[in-house]
Amino acid sequence: MRELTYVQALNEALRQAMTEDDSVFMIGENIRGGVRAETAGLDDAFGPERVLDMPISEAAFTGFANGAALAGMRPVVEFQVASLMFPAFDQIVNQAAKLPLMLGGQAHIPVTFLLMGAGAGGGRAGQHSDNPYTFLIHAGIKTVVPSTPADAKGLMLAAIFEDDPVALVVNSNLLGRTGDVPAGGERARLAKGAVRRAGKDVTVCAVGHLVPAALEAAGRLAEDGIEVEVWDPRSLLPFDKEGLAASVAKTGRLVIADDSARTCGFAAEVAGLVAERCFDSLRGPIKRVTRADVTVPYSTPIEQAMLPAADELEAAVRTLAA
């Protein structure tokens, strides 16, 4: 184990995957020449046929990756800002997600969509502040949202070697986060959540960059004797239903922290799932802490006002635990 930043861990995963399997290659905008930390050095190590800069044609280069995947490759497609997947949405939704079933199992599409630059908080305004995993989940794209450097690596490797399309969503707020990262090439398991802090009073199911926020809130709440269990799903589709149910069975209370739209967002799905499966365990209403249902505005006070953070989480837990 050594300590790496989150973005260094992504880079190491890409490097190891490309070393391990020569069908892995990477495409994206401005990924050569050491401009971007997640791909730094890959072009020097693997050459221009395995690290390709693409024109600003998200639809075509995503389709290009789908075609290469159908021909036996394992492409990694980087969107340098997560919202740039929208111009490519036909190729993600109508093609990558739908073709395998419609082909009746004749072929699979082992493509990885690496969505960098997800999330808000940097004054990037509405078109560069999306955290668009619910769109992908609705489409049936397997989606992982690593919250730690170790998971950034392990889930990146898992995504690349999964035989289906997988989206890995990287929140900008996490890139500099440090943590221990295994040196080997172990792949994380999809559909497997993790308890990040154990507690008996309230479960907080926190997605992505809200895991550190939940840990911060849990620390404050502990000072008042409220023991929060922070549960990180890591993989949103497929989702570790048993893992969350086990935590809720223990605490009887659930707060879901999800920086996506409130209406039909990921938190809504988790709430529905727990209401259906864990009704008898619940000792209070399920609370959601999410984004507001509006476009992210630019100016800092109004940007921050519509985003979920540790303070809102703490307040939700206090309401439940009272």
Partner: peptide, 18 residues
């Protein structure tokens, strides 16, 4: 393919593989 034009980039990806 049911989406007009959608096969073309996939053909490009296959050709790149070859």
């Amino acid at each position: 393919n049911g989406i007009v034009g959608a096969g073309a980039p996939m053909a490009c990806g296959a050709a790149f593989t070859f």
